[in-house]
Write a protein that binds this DNA or RNA. Structure first.
Lengths: 146, 146
DNA sequence: ACCTTAATTTATAATGATTCTAAACTGCTT
DNA sequence: AAGCAGTTTAGAATCATTATAAATTAAGGT
């Protein structure tokens, strides 16, 4: 059985990977092995809410060898490039949301879990103008005792 | 010039102090020297937003001798007894708000300052019900690039 | 393919806010 | 006045996050 190692090695990864690679490039981020692997974990399925520690553990489970520092770096780089959005729910840790569109959140205090609420599910009217400066974003968090 | 040390010592503090003492008692908190002093700083004037570190420094300026641990204890005790409300704006520190009524916030990212928005200034309609559990509270934070 | 360079990764140390500990102290009731 | 549960405290410990500085690697040019 003949095979062509060179071509095998050069063979392109499945579509999902390509997309991730393009996303990174488009964002102006060098698609390193680590960033690609983390981005794949983050963006493979639907929207997610992760913590640095959580993503780090997930990477380990998937035999993705990255340092915790790199997970932090990647999360911040992705956030800076609007691939992620950072959410402050409690002072003890930060969550990162793969949904960067306009939306709000349920926060379940017991479990520490977050759930998206589509923007159209809440009518926010009469938003006051800030005394000065410009509105960067409006966060709405419905805290639920579950 | 005669004076009566015993009576002087026993003399009641001004109204504000009495009120603070009553507030603590009513809340079921023992009115210790430290808690009284901190409560006075917190509730003397209008509504305020403080951090533990900030209140600690303010205490020092006023020659109120309390430890940082006590400031943390007091802030948490007050919050538990609904004399304060804790607000999570960013993951690096907690703010405590002396306004425990229904209201929202402007957050000025540059300065790290918070400003109250009265509840009636924002119309929040169609709030979705949580899938399970009960709504503990709804936070609205308007983040301002100033 | 090979170089060069700047960006990235990494182990590890450092930081900073907060919490814990366990010993000393103090309101409050008897 | 005495005793005790509730508080305070200095200092150590914790935890998430950031900084450091050396090693690695992606990208572009030759």
């Amino acid at each position: 059985m003949l095979h062509t190692p060179g071509i095998m090695r050069a063979k392109k990864a499945p579509t999902a990977d390509l997309t991730v690679l393009e996303r990174l490039r488009t964002a102006g981020l060098r698609p390193t092995r680590q960033r690609l692997a983390l981005a794949k974990l983050l963006f493979a399925q639907g929207h997610r809410h992760v913590t640095a520690e959580g993503l780090f553990n997930e990477a380990k489970e998937h035999r993705v060898d990255v340092s915790l520092a790199t997970v932090y770096n990647a999360l911040h780089d992705f956030t800076e490039k609007a691939l992620l959005r950072e959410i402050s729910i409690d002072s003890s840790r930060s969550y990162f949301d793969t949904n960067v569109g306009d939306h709000y959140h349920f926060y379940f205090e017991q479990s520490g879990r977050l759930q998206d609420i589509p923007a159209e599910r809440i009518a926010l009217a009469n938003l006051p103008e800030p005394p000065d400066g410009v509105v960067a974003r409006v966060d709405v968090i419905i805290r639920v005792k579950d």
